[in-house]
Design a protein around this nucleic acid. Sequence first.
DNA 1: GCGTCCCGCTCCCAAAACTCG
DNA 2: CCGAGTTTTGGGAGCGGGACG
Lengths: 372, 372
Amino acid sequence: MSRQAGEPAEADVPAEPTGVPTMFDVARRAGVSHQTVSRVLNGLTGVAASTKMRVEQAIADLNYTPSPAARAMAKRRSGSIGLILAGRPDYGPSNAALGFNEAARDSGYTVSQASMRSLDADALAQAVHRLVLQRVEAIVLISGERDGVAVVSGIDAGVPIIAVASEPAPEGRPGPHRVAIDQYAGARLATEHLIGLGHRVIRHVTGPPDSMDAAERRRGWVDAMAEHGLDVREPIAGDWLASSGHAAGQALVADPDATAVFVANDQMALGVLHACHAAGVQVPGDLSVMGFDDIPEAAYFTPALTTMRQDFDALGRDVMSTVLDVLGAPGDRGASGDGGAPGMNGGKHLAPERTTRVPELIVRATTATPRA
Amino acid sequence: MSRQAGEPAEADVPAEPTGVPTMFDVARRAGVSHQTVSRVLNGLTGVAASTKMRVEQAIADLNYTPSPAARAMAKRRSGSIGLILAGRPDYGPSNAALGFNEAARDSGYTVSQASMRSLDADALAQAVHRLVLQRVEAIVLISGERDGVAVVSGIDAGVPIIAVASEPAPEGRPGPHRVAIDQYAGARLATEHLIGLGHRVIRHVTGPPDSMDAAERRRGWVDAMAEHGLDVREPIAGDWLASSGHAAGQALVADPDATAVFVANDQMALGVLHACHAAGVQVPGDLSVMGFDDIPEAAYFTPALTTMRQDFDALGRDVMSTVLDVLGAPGDRGASGDGGAPGMNGGKHLAPERTTRVPELIVRATTATPRA
DNA sequence: GCGTCCCGCTCCCAAAACTCG
DNA sequence: CCGAGTTTTGGGAGCGGGACG
């Protein structure tokens, strides 16, 4: 009886709804029960075609849309996935996140983002916690930091966690599900390209120590060199930023032996190029430079950068596909990964291809045969 | 009575909760009623310190966290804001989104992301629609497209919409709330820097026609030139990508008069630099080049790029601050902007500074006095 | 500080309507 | 015309918390 008094006394016909219409409003208008409305809403069978039509008409008339909160409460499923993007919003992560976002939407999931510039352990743990409070059904972590994944593994989130991580899980502690592009293979390809050109002394500029991608790229370089019987020189440490590439470049130009360098990402390669130019070192005449990522600008570096292209968009989709697998596999809800028999992923959603993607070599103008 | 039969006959003591604990579980454990729990949860007064402590202990013991769905339903507030990031995830938008995300979190809001690579009208309208279905309390659009804002203005979302848009609203149709960095002022600063150096023929490479930022930067360039009595040459059309900058650069090097160029963003400036290098045109000796944005790589272009720095992170925070204002101002819930008296924004949250930010000139090595 | 009702929807169960032989 | 078997539909009890009285 909280209705306003003084209404035209119209028997007991419930007044027209004022705020957002509910299922009951629709039901009344269609002359059916709320239950029937629920049925047509969820596409259940057992509703006469004519009734269904009436209900749909009423829904349209009222401009009714179901309340996600009520639905989530009743079904005990939020229908949303948490996404944590930690660190600088670089080309790779941003694009992977976008691909993931679109894939999630296509699968009917909503994505709740908890991004942050910082990648310290506390902040990360808090982000996971906030997402858990939100009752997301899974958490996706995009941040190549090894420690980040470790932090997250340590949390018993109660929901599956899927991380973009190119390194395999450490023995014994499975941790989150891992998805990635094969950095190791890409690095080998890059190094072999240089070797194939005839280079013998190929140096490497790494990414930051805590980056798994950086470690895998370095490992690929080491293995390729070793396999070809080439000397593995001490790598030069970088941090993904062009500035560190610049510093590395200054060290490189002082190395009389090096005829080529495999730089762990394009931004640093830009820095190297800059240093070479400043020092009068010709690229690729005096030094061949190889990048990694193929950011859109790479083709317009001076000279145009030879690099490894990665399909980040596809990576994002792979992540979502993994989420679906994990969510579809009952009994696997929890932070820890597949402790059971591998390969027996019996979810209703199966990733069409679970083979890891490999970066693609894009040859441009910074690599050539070494000087005679 | 849906309990499993065969339980140890233990009178009628409600069984220990099995799944996620609820308020009632907490209440029982603390020996209070469920809404006393609610009170301490919401920090309301009127709870004895001792009781409060018991409740808190119970909460901790049970590891209880309130259900956001239930709360949303009861309070009729989702506590979440929708974010649409449309188009390529470039440096600017990505960082603004990050800043926004962090600010939203700090304000206790959750952000539901609906991003997409495409920026066509339909996709955008659908994104808005999906967000509305999710009952977000406001929608933020980050995408410099004029049409995007137009599309969104046309939708009666029923919730406030805040767009990053550097152009003022067209007369008559206020549309969404607008927040931006002052592109016009930045462009004037850039142009004046060049003029101050002594350049007379300064050309301009624009961003895509539908970009508001591009239009404002162009307008700034035009006005600055005109005010100094300089000839306003036909601008060269670009699309933000380095490739278009490269094409523009090729046209530029063929222009014997031009001694400087103001390029609408750093990526295109990179393309211009590339073209200059290929054509043997010295920068800044023969041609001064000015960029816009100051992406992290700009300092390592060859030569290092003079450009205008924008604080995207702050922009993101400004957006959130505006959202808070709008949400705090009752009676303004709807897609249309402030039809009322401006300045009287009486929300409980007031942006500390609502003055528009201006980009900052970063002088590096691509600009100099024109050749004699 | 506690009882009570309500938020908007889903699920379980039963009632009604219809089909046929 | 009846009863059994099938649809189609409706009733009511939660789900987990918030606002009053």
